[in-house]
């Protein structure tokens, strides 16, 4: 009931009718960073370090696994189910757990020292990692 009342109050205040389409939305503002691709990784590393993060450059999946091994040694860790982590051998490292059961995952995460994920995108200008959740 409140739905109709609220929508009707809005339409009355704005002088609009139900189902009336709006005029065109202002054009989207899109102005990409004028950089070539070669600059992306150094820029991303610099942005992460400005945010007090640490970066490592792995030359192979095996190398990535070894870097993670050195970081999690002696710590309780939880890895996500991302295929890239599997390819790097990370779930089989000592001390690293991986769960698919919701309750077990929650309990493990609440006690973990380290969380290990992949990322879908890395944004060069801000140092942001984009993770799409739901599948991993």
């Amino acid at each position: 009931m409140s739905r109709q009342a609220i929508l009707q109050k809005i339409r009355t205040a704005l002088g609009r009718n139900a189902g009336e389409p709006p005029p065109p939305v202002p054009p989207a503002l899109f102005d990409p960073l004028p950089l070539d691709r070669a600059a992306f990784v150094p820029l991303f590393f610099a942005a992460i370090e400005r945010l007090a993060g640490a970066t490592y450059r792995a030359v192979s999946q095996k190398d990535a696994g070894e870097i993670v091994r050195s970081l999690v040694v002696g710590k309780q860790s939880v890895a996500s189910n991302a295929p890239l982590l599997e390819a790097c051998g990370i779930p089989s490292l000592p001390g690293v757990e991986r769960w698919t059961d919701r309750e077990a995952l929650r309990t493990a995460c609440s006690a973990a020292d380290v969380g290990i994920t992949s990322a879908s995108y890395a944004l060069a200008d801000t140092g942001v990692l984009v993770m799409l959740s739901g599948h991993d």
Binding site: L7, I10, R11, L14, R16, A18, E20, P21, P22, P23, V25, P26
Partner: peptide, 8 residues
Amino acid sequence: HTIENLDY
């Protein structure tokens, strides 16, 4: 634009 067409 959004507020002027809020119901939509």
